[in-house]
């Protein structure tokens, strides 16, 4: 499966990725609406926060709104989401985001727009093995 990859050595901290992401999905350039966040804590290299497609949130979602699509990407069925934000609180990477203007949370679904826009080539899409099935996915095979 494809996931986003970040090289802190190359990142120049321009935040263009955040603006492009926000513009792609919410038609506005607002970091708070980006599915990727570049953090500069002042010491050490810059860090990036984005969904690594681990799927832990799938088992936390009470409505089965979160699922892994055929390409392995963790996606949200908005129609099923009740906006409980469990996934936001439980993401081990802090990469499921909440914004008060929207009922549903959002994560990186590897669209690649930020990769194209990054002037320093710090972002790329790489191939990784799909993680083992979540409990939810295993349960589907039990009850059909």
């Amino acid at each position: 499966m494809n996931v986003l990859s970040f090289d802190p050595e190359l990142c120049v901290g321009c935040h263009i990725c955040e603006e492009v992401c926000s513009d792609t999905w919410f038609k506005t350039t607002d970091v708070e609406r980006s599915r990727i966040r570049i953090l500069d804590e002042g010491t050490g290299p810059l860090q990036a926060v984005f969904c690594v497609q681990c799927g832990e949130c799938i088992d936390v979602c009470p409505t089965k709104a979160l699922y892994r699509d055929r390409k392995g990407i963790v996606r949200l069925r908005k129609k099923l989401c009740v906006g409980c934000l469990s996934c936001v609180g439980f993401c081990p990477y802090g990469a499921m985001f909440y914004h008060p203007d929207y009922l549903e949370p959002f994560n990186c679904i590897v669209c690649g727009q930020c990769v194209k826009a990054c002037p320093a080539d710090a972002l790329s899409i790489v191939e990784e093995a799909t993680p083992a099935p979540t409990v939810t996915e295993q349960w589907e095979t039990v009850v059909g």
Partner: peptide, 13 residues
């Protein structure tokens, strides 16, 4: 059974 979101209302983690 482990690993299921066993809340009795939505959002009970």
């Amino acid at each position: 059974s482990q690993g299921l979101p066993d809340g009795c209302w939505y959002g009970c983690t």
